[in-house]
């Protein structure tokens, strides 16, 4: 096979993006060349993008081989599982109706989906780093900066098997003090430091 799988997928992504964009752009008036509407430039952009995506796709059929890394079965299964987890969490939390505003629904859905994705070892770094990042967002406004830091550090440090609890604890203390000093004491950014529900 001479197929360049990476380029093939790149081409597909570009085409897909352009087609979806073109479709969404149907809502926007094109206008005239003189008074271009909001849809004119997007239309041009997506048409060009489809063209380039198409050429990338076609050339990829002959310029290989350039295969992707092989995925294990766990890794393959984790992707749809994470997507399902995302939507399930989204609708459950939205249905609970207790966390309003501030994107708690979106944040918790991302967080759970990232955790599910992290189950197979191959996706652990990808899942946990993002899980830690979104946990930071979830905890920040009501939990305060310190709690958000602890959550983010603990979750993301699981991504590296080298970590030991003692080291993580030391790092938490160091980073909490450092962030407090830099962002609260020096820069005085507008954010709660301590939990609000206490």
């Amino acid at each position: 096979m001479k197929i360049n799988t990476k380029d093939l997928l790149s081409g597909i992504i570009l085409i897909l993006f352009a087609v979806i964009g073109y479709w969404l752009n149907q809502d926007h008036a094109l206008g005239t060349a003189r008074r271009m509407g909001p849809g004119y430039m997007p239309m041009l952009t997506f048409v060009i993008l489809v063209g380039i995506g198409g050429i990338v796709f076609l050339l990829a059929l002959f310029s290989g081989p350039n295969p992707l890394e092989n995925w294990t079965r766990g890794e393959i299964l984790a992707v749809p599982a994470a997507i399902i987890a995302f939507f399930a969490t989204y609708f459950i939390v939205a249905g609970l109706n207790i966390f309003q505003g501030n994107y708690y629904v979106l944040g918790s859905a991302i967080f759970v989906a990232c955790l599910v994705l992290a189950i197979p070892p191959g996706w652990r770094a990808l899942g946990l780093v993002h899980a830690g990042f979104s946990l930071f967002g979830l905890l920040l406004e009501q939990g305060g900066l310190m709690l958000a830091l602890v959550g983010c550090i603990v979750v993301s440090s699981v991504a590296d098997p080298d970590h030991r609890p003692k080291g993580v604890l030391g790092m938490i203390i160091f980073l909490c003090v450092l962030c407090w000093w830099v962002f609260i004491k020096e820069l005085d950014i507008r954010v709660n430091v301590w939990p609000q529900f206490l």
């Binding site: 780093v129 830690g132 990042f133 930071f136 967002g137 900066l145 958000a148 830091l149 983010c152 550090i153 993301s156 440090s157 590296d160 080298d162 970590h163 080291g167 790092m171 980073l175 450092l178 962030c179 962002f183 950014i189 954010v191």
Partner: peptide, 13 residues
């Protein structure tokens, strides 16, 4: 292993 969580939290803030 100590550097990356630090980068992460600094980015987040």
């Amino acid at each position: 292993k100590y550097l990356y969580p630090s980068i992460l939290v600094f980015c987040a803030i």
